[in-house]
């Protein structure tokens, strides 16, 4: 298990996106967050959150074996990464992103999103 999402309670506030970038990148910029909140309106009138479930597809795609499994979390090893970005388009939820230096970055299971969510819609087990 790891991070999971319950759309019965999510109200679309994006506090998770805010804390994600402030915690990990020391900046206020939800568009760079490692998860993505969106609503489907007017129908069916529900919110959804794309999250990284550590599926490892990015790691399989990496020609440099630079995305390494540490415990239950895939992490980018910048010492091995050659910035080819092969990992970016293969992510099924578009959550491998690119930092200011051209390196890919992704969710590291810091759990801050789950801990801030006022609706308990993000759960880490």
């Amino acid at each position: 298990m790891g991070l999971s999402f319950n759309n019965e309670t999510c109200s679309g506030c994006k506090a998770c996106e805010l804390v994600c970038t402030l915690q990990n990148m020391k900046e206020i910029n939800p568009s760079r967050a490692m998860l993505h909140v969106y609503g489907k309106f007017p129908e069916p009138g529900k919110y959804f959150v794309d999250i990284c479930d550590q599926c490892g597809i990015c790691a399989k795609e990496c020609p440099m074996d630079a995305i390494e499994l540490k415990g239950r979390t895939y992490r980018v090893n910048k010492d091995k990464c050659d910035k080819c970005l092969a990992c970016v388009p293969v992510c099924p939820v578009n959550l491998v992103k690119i930092d200011d230096d051209g390196y890919p970055y992704k969710c590291i299971n810091c759990k801050q999103c789950a801990s801030i969510c006022p609706r308990d819609a993000l759960i880490f087990e």
């Binding site: 109200s11 679309g12 506030c13 609503g39 309106f41 009138g45 529900k46 006022p118 609706r119």
Partner: peptide, 19 residues
């Protein structure tokens, strides 16, 4: 009611979206 609908960064969503 279908869902609570919150504004940006709001912990107490007053919006009730329904049908």
């Amino acid at each position: 009611k279908i869902t609570d609908k919150g504004c940006f960064a709001c912990p107490i969503p007053c919006g009730k979206y329904g049908y």
